[in-house]
Amino acid sequence: MTYVQRPIPAPTPTPETKEFWNAAAEGKLLLRRNRATGEAHWYPRALCPFTLSPDTEWFEASGQGTIYSFSVMRRAEVPYAIAYVTLAEGPTMLTNIVNCDFDALAIGQKVRLVFVPSEGGAPVPMFEPA
């Protein structure tokens, strides 16, 4: 079965996330972590969601992950797979699984980062079977 990609609406960066989306344009997935504890979070914030410390920094993710859960949206013009992927760095992010056979998706499956172009905005980090 040929995979058909649905159009992806452009993300809407805020001043807090400009750097994240600039990096996405260069094919990099940035995560934000607390400098003191080293703990990464998702979605990225200027203030650590575990301590509200503003002492946070960007770092680049490896792009490796595992499917935590997913659902194939069948009632859509172009069906797509929404998922939570747990990154190798710890946080679990909401995303899509692309370039895949929907019927072969499974929780626990290894996936890897891929950027999918959006309509008029930065490319969006998604995942495909590893």
Binding site: R6, I8, P9, A10, P11, T12, P13, T14, E16, T17, W21, W42, Y43, R45, S71, M73, R75, A76, Y80, I82, M93, L94, T95, N96, S118, V124, M126
Partner: peptide, 14 residues
Amino acid sequence: PEMQFEYPYGVTVA
């Protein structure tokens, strides 16, 4: 804050 990290992925109620 979550809009940019959810809307592009097609989060619906279902």
